[in-house]
Amino acid sequence: MTADQYAWWRQALKLAGGYRELTHDQLLLLGPSADSPESGFFRNRPYKDAPLVPVAIWRDGSGTIFCLQNDKEAEADKVWNYACRNPITEALYRSVLAGEAWPDEPPSVSKDHNLPAKTGDLHKDLIVELSAEKETVEGFLKKPISTQEQADQAGVWAKRLAGIATKADEQFNVEKRPWLDGGNAVDDKWRDVRTDAKELAKKLKKHGEAWLKELDRQEQDRQRKAREDADRIRREAEAAAQRVADAARAAEEEQAQRNAMANPAGLAASFEQESQKEADLLEAEAEAKRLVQQVADADREAQPRSVFSGRTGAKVSLHTYWVASITDYDALVVALKHDPEVREAVEKVAGRIARNKDATLPAGMERIPDKRAA
């Protein structure tokens, strides 16, 4: 057992930012230790769609591993596959055990609205649940998102509302199947629940779009600065390597001169100079090696990082959509003059071309990215 059994968890926590889920690339940065349980505090989902619960893992002096999941004994190997991606602070672990909510968890409508007990009629129950969700969501949408916790809540909330829509869709299909000829009545019954839940989910994603775009801008700035640092360090490393090569060449030349000297006193002085220059050369070589390692570290720092809100199964990220940007309308019309929809549908035609990333662009237009929350 290492002197600091929590070292891996601290590094994971630093990458995660306190509670956010680690990406695949971040797990790779943490090394092979991610393959087996490490000591620390995490959160886990015991089974599909189960609520998140806090997890603590530690080892005693003999190296025996212990694990508590939601304050109950558990097998570390069984929780690790999901928990390893979800490190949390000890303070958050203890606050959730004490009954506090996860920071990325949206408000609980059953708790805040004192919902009645479920009736067993899925349609009625979903209407009640959606009504409570809608009231809370509309209040949330009135203010811009200004923190990562709020952006994460919006993503998870959208997933929760999409779940209501999915339940409604499933039951809608079950009820409609025997009534294909008279399906209009079922359509009317379920339309509001299905469409309202989906629209609210879309609004939540759209609501977080400005925040995600700002994070994306910051990430682009970070990458640019990291690339500049990497280039600067690379130049320094190249200069250091050149200095080592020059020093080595000078040492060889001086050695040749010493070999030609016959004066013993002169030889002794030259040997002293040689020792000093060898020490200087070793120091220069060490500096060159250090700079080479810094170049590798700087290149890793310049790699892109994911920008998202929410968590697994409820992530919202910026997706790139290609849209048309007409730069020369007349030139574009000439290029498309044989198209039957020319003039009255130039925007439509250009948009269709833009969405096909492999299409050759005609004169007068260009393809530009349009990032949206999805």
Rank of each mutant, 00 (worst) to 15 (best):
D280L: 07
F42M: 07
N173M: 09
E21I: 00
E38S: 12
A237P: 05
W8C: 10
A168L: 00
A16C: 10
F140H: 07
W211E: 01
K189G: 11
D49K: 05
V156I: 10
D246W: 10
P304E: 01
K143F: 01
N114T: 06
E175H: 10
Y19P: 03
L126K: 02
W80H: 03
T89K: 08
E129S: 09
Y329D: 05
T64E: 14
E253C: 01
H24C: 06
D192F: 00
D71L: 11
E366G: 11
R234Y: 12
I353Y: 11
K134P: 02
Q69V: 03
A363R: 05
H123M: 06
A247M: 09
H319G: 10
R305Y: 06
R20K: 12
R367D: 08
D192N: 12
D330L: 07
F41H: 13
Q293E: 09
E347R: 10
R249P: 00
W58R: 00
P144S: 07
W157Q: 08
P87D: 06
D339F: 07
Q150Y: 05
L52M: 09
N70A: 11
D280K: 13
Q220M: 10
D77P: 03
A279Y: 01
A335Y: 10
R194Y: 02
K225L: 15
L361Y: 01
K124C: 02
I65S: 15
G183W: 07
P54S: 09
K225R: 15
P32D: 08
D125G: 01
K203N: 09
A286W: 10
S306L: 05
E149Q: 07
A248D: 15
L13S: 04
A162W: 03
E138A: 01
Q220C: 08
A331G: 15
K167E: 06
R45K: 13
Q242K: 13
P340N: 07
E133W: 13
D330A: 12
D35I: 10
R222V: 04
E272S: 15
L267G: 13
L122Y: 11
Y93M: 11
A91D: 12
S110R: 04
R235I: 04
V53G: 02
K277N: 13
E228R: 07
P369L: 02
L97H: 07
K289P: 15
A239V: 05
D60S: 04
P340D: 09
N173F: 00
D125M: 04
P54I: 10
W58P: 03
